[in-house]
Simulated assay, not measured.
Amino acid sequence: MTTGPLTGLRIVEISGLGPTPFTAQLMADMGAEVIRIARPGARGAAAHVLGMAVDPLDRGRDVLELDLKSPADQAVARQLILRADALIEGMRPGAMERLGLGPDAFPENPRLVYGRMTGWGQSGPLAQTAGHDINYIALSGALGSIGTPETPVLPLNLVGDFGGGGLYLAFGMLAAILQARATGQGQVVDAAITDGVAHLMGMISGLAGQGLWSAPRGGNLLDGGVPYYTTYRCACGGHFAIGPLEDKFWAEFQRLAGFAPGELPDRKDRATWPALRAALQARFAERSRAEWERIFAGSDACATPVLNLQEAAAHPHNRARGAYLTHEGLTQPAPAPKLSRTPGAIGAGSAQTRISAETALARWGAD
């Protein structure tokens, strides 16, 4: 039985890539009833592009195959949208309008929240051009801020697709749904990844605007530039991450790492950073990652092992939190965040199953 906080919310998802199914997954994990509309015979987006047999982004909702260029299938889609609280789509601007399914096509459902996920947004000089995560974060200033002085380093597609894209679409849609419930009036949520990433970069932009983020990439406080907020290679070849920014945590780190008071160079003097980095690297190279993990365990030294995905799922803290679970034979993240009274859960639907138009319409009370 669904118990999530979005129980009772009905959402139509037009099948798409990356941030679009991620938004739908977030909603479904929290109890919303989501019906995905996909092209007949189409596999999941990740299966088509990346070759995945099971994609966690597809979990928790049923799939209805419709050809939206067919009048009969389009009529089915319209019936569902007229009974939905919200719609999620990630097509190029204007595509839904050309199908006759744009935001203005449903005056009978004035409370409909129409969520639109694109890289560049619904307007602007680049709105009609193609792009991917790497392009959006490049133009938003994020990619140019991450990496070494020599080259930017891709932060997977976490910053663009999922951080600046899917999460912002979900937040915007929930805000609009709350407003629609209060007023009876829905609206369009224009979620551009470039907008979301720019917003995510707010603190860094603030630092830069005040001259506190002025060194080249890889030379600032939070980008690996300082020797006490970075990673070090251990004797076994693994790595350890340290981040004792505050003085009391720095003192605890030095004690556990075996440095006597005053032994290390003054970290407040930028000129000493090369020597400090060399000293820390030499010390971490003396022991394996597992040994350092035992030394720092349970302390306030802000020092943790750098884990791979399999190790992360097996870590005692993540296990105690239930951060991962097994679904459809695949270890994947559990619904997040955790709610005390109406926790999220993975629904019974799956991208591997299909429902008929009759089933979908009957479920939502349509002929």
Results as ranks from 00 to 15, higher is better:
Ile134Glu: 07
Ala138Lys: 07
Val153Trp: 05
Thr148Ile: 03
Tyr136Glu: 14
Gln122Cys: 08
Pro125Val: 09
Leu139Thr: 06
Asp133Tyr: 04
Thr151Asp: 10
Asn135Ser: 15
Tyr136Asp: 14
Val159Glu: 00
Leu154Gln: 13
Ala127Leu: 10
Ser123Ile: 11
Asp133Met: 00
Ala142Leu: 03
Glu150Gln: 02
Thr129Ala: 05
Gln122Ala: 11
Ala130Asn: 08
Gly131Cys: 08
Gly147Trp: 05
Gly124Tyr: 15
Pro125Met: 11
Pro149Arg: 09
Gly141Ser: 11
Leu143Ile: 11
Gly131Glu: 06
Val159Ile: 07
Gln128Ser: 14
Val159Cys: 01
Tyr136Thr: 12
Asn157Cys: 00
Gln128Pro: 09
Pro152Gln: 04
Ala127Cys: 15
Ser140Asn: 08
Pro149Tyr: 06
Gln128Cys: 09
Asn157Leu: 00
Asp133Asn: 02
Ser145Pro: 02
Thr151Arg: 15
Ser123His: 14
Ala142Met: 04
Ala138Gln: 06
Ile134Gln: 09
Gln122Ile: 06
Ile146Leu: 13
Thr151Ser: 14
Ala127Lys: 15
Leu143Ala: 08
Pro125Trp: 09
Leu156Trp: 12
Ile134Phe: 11
Gly141His: 13
Ala138Trp: 06
Asn157Gln: 02
Ile146Trp: 02
Tyr136Cys: 08
Tyr136Phe: 15
Pro155Asp: 09
Thr129Asn: 07
Asn135Asp: 15
His132Ser: 00
Ile134Val: 12
Ala142Gln: 04
Leu156Cys: 05
Ser123Gln: 13
Gly147Met: 04
Gly147Gln: 04
Tyr136His: 11
His132Trp: 01
Ser123Val: 12
Ala142Asn: 03
Gly147Ser: 04
Gly131Ser: 10
Gln128Val: 09
Pro152Leu: 03
Leu126Lys: 15
Ser123Ala: 15
Ile146Phe: 07
Ala142Gly: 04
Val159Lys: 01
Pro125Phe: 10
Ser140Leu: 10
Leu154Arg: 15
Gly147Leu: 06
Pro149Ala: 04
Tyr136Gln: 14
Pro152Cys: 02
Ser145Ala: 15
Leu139Arg: 12
Leu143Tyr: 08
Ser140Glu: 13
Gln128Met: 14
Pro149Thr: 04
